[in-house]
């Protein structure tokens, strides 16, 4: 995963609250291998009629080049499906700005280079008002943890460790494997102090 620290993008307003993971990607598309791409499934049932045609009035259909979403509260609530993040990333989305995020979604986002930037409700509303039903250029600076859109400049909230991970594009498995000896020592100690923590043999 490549790291990034500056983004000059195109923002789009998606002001609905509680855009949950079932809306981000309906369950029926989740058996597809990632290599086939998930972008076409993003917000599938909001974007498309029952016969699959794109609804011309849906914001993301009018501006498919948008790469930053300014969303409502509790974005990505619901299931742990990382496919919700795959759908966003594969559709070219690099950052979502919202007052709050589902905990698991936010963690999945960072693991895929997608920024979940928290901004208070009032500022999100100001950004959405500025965008109205169009798009606008946005600059996101991860180092400074700031966003600028239509003259509105705001500092966003992001866990410090997540910021570093996004900037460096770190991969956890590589990092963790450096701690192999500590993990082995922990396991040895746990097997002594809590032998019951290993499953009993099948009877």
């Amino acid at each position: 995963m490549a790291g990034w620290s500056q983004l000059d993008g195109m923002a789009l307003s998606l002001p609905q609250a509680n855009v949950d993971t079932d809306q981000l990607i309906p369950a029926r598309f989740m058996s597809v291998p990632r290599s086939e791409g998930y972008g076409a499934y993003l917000l599938h049932d909001m974007r498309r009629d029952a016969d699959g045609t794109l609804r011309p009035d849906f914001p993301l259909n009018r501006f498919p080049q948008a790469d930053v979403l300014v969303a409502g509260r509790n974005f990505g609530s619901g299931s742990s499906r990382e496919a919700a993040v795959y759908a966003l990333v594969d559709a070219g989305i690099r950052a979502v700005i919202a007052p709050s995020f589902g905990d698991i979604f936010a963690s999945n986002a960072v693991n895929n280079g997608l920024l979940p930037a928290r901004l208070d409700e009032a500022t999100c509303t100001r950004l959405q008002d500025a965008l109205a039903d169009g798009t606008g250029p946005v600059r996101i600076d991860l180092d400074a943890q700031r966003i600028v859109l239509d003259g509105i400049e705001a500092a966003f909230d992001l866990d410090a460790s997540w910021r570093m991970k996004l900037i460096n594009g770190w991969d956890d498995i590589d990092l963790t494997r450096n701690h192999g000896p500590q993990i082995a020592a922990y396991k040895e100690q746990r097997s002594q102090t809590a032998p019951w923590a290993w499953p009993a043999a099948a009877d």
Binding site: S80, E82, N111, D159, T176
Partner: peptide, 21 residues
């Protein structure tokens, strides 16, 4: 609950990174 990247991490290392809630 964890996402797929974390599932892969647990499979590979039997550990998970997490900030205490």
């Amino acid at each position: 609950g964890i996402g797929a990247t974390e599932v892969a991490h647990v499979l590979a290392t039997q550990t998970v990174w997490q900030r205490k809630p």
